[in-house]
């Protein structure tokens, strides 16, 4: 019982600290000077580091989804619905979620470990004493970079996943490239793409925020760095699912209106 209340307390403490951290991010975001070149460098790193991974996972998801669904649709004689079905499910849910989870593993843990080791080796302190606000220089730029880059990565991942799906359709059903993508874009509505895109900004923010939070407040020692990287991924994944849940709820209301 005692350990339970302790765990509950640390849980709430963690959430509270994370909220303060997020609040501080927004406060520092609008304060001059903005670390523009560092922001661009982070954008480049975040995008460049993950694009191959996102492309690969997206491609495989496209293949697998199509292979798995095809027999069922064939049973109903509805194989011609394949492009629209795959298109909608990838763009609305699977693409954003898979890409975000992959990026949580790649970017989130990377940020956690990087900031964690900078904290442990006192690099963050060194920045602070040399007149540069490390929160602005390290945290704000990273969170912002991930928030901006993730939607792009997700759109890229969606495109590759659809291409993977097309390859299966082409091999098994002799569907031409033009027909496949015509059907995909016919099926997609603005109401499918907009919520998914808005959602992906939040996903990016969550990945950046948790990664930076865990790294920035890393405990001393190399074990602390490992723990920071690990818990960044775990917490981010949970947060992503919660965000997705809320996003679908909210989008559903607007969809009905």
């Amino acid at each position: 019982m005692n350990s339970f209340s302790f765990k509950l307390k640390t849980f709430f403490l963690e959430i509270g600290e994370l909220s303060l951290f997020a609040g501080r991010f927004f406060k520092e975001l609008f304060k001059r000077p903005f670390e523009y070149s560092e922001f661009l460098r982070q954008c480049y790193l975040v995008g460049n580091k993950s694009i191959v991974l996102v492309g690969l996972t997206g491609f495989i998801i496209g293949l697998v989804l199509t292979l798995q669904t095809r027999p069922t649709l064939a049973e109903f004689g509805a194989v011609s619905w394949m492009p629209s079905m795959v298109g909608i499910s990838i763009v609305r849910e699977i693409g954003p979620m898979i890409t975000a989870l992959v990026c949580a593993g790649k970017i989130g843990s990377g940020i956690g470990a990087e900031l964690g080791s900078m904290r442990v080796t006192e690099q963050i302190d060194a920045m602070e004493v040399s007149g540069t606000n490390p929160f602005k220089f390290l945290v704000v730029t990273r969170i912002l970079a991930v928030t901006m880059m993730l939607p792009i990565l997700i759109i890229f991942g969606d495109a590759i996943a659809l291409y993977g799906s097309y390859i299966i359709e082409n091999l098994k059903g002799n569907v031409s490239f033009q027909l496949f993508f015509n059907q995909v874009f016919d099926a997609l509505e603005f109401g499918d793409i907009l919520p998914a895109t808005i959602k992906s900004f939040f996903f990016g923010f969550a990945i950046g925020l948790v990664g930076c939070f865990k790294g920035y407040f890393c405990k001393k020692g190399t074990a602390g760095v490992g723990k920071a990287a690990n818990s960044a991924v775990v917490y981010t994944s949970i947060l992503l699912f919660i965000l997705d849940f809320i996003a679908v709820f909210v989008a559903d209301i607007f969809y009905e209106l």
Partner: peptide, 15 residues
């Protein structure tokens, strides 16, 4: 930390 815990509870409840 008491303040932070209260904030955490507030955030969870709010969500």
């Amino acid at each position: 930390s008491g303040h932070k815990i209260r904030l955490g509870i507030f955030v969870i409840l709010g969500t």
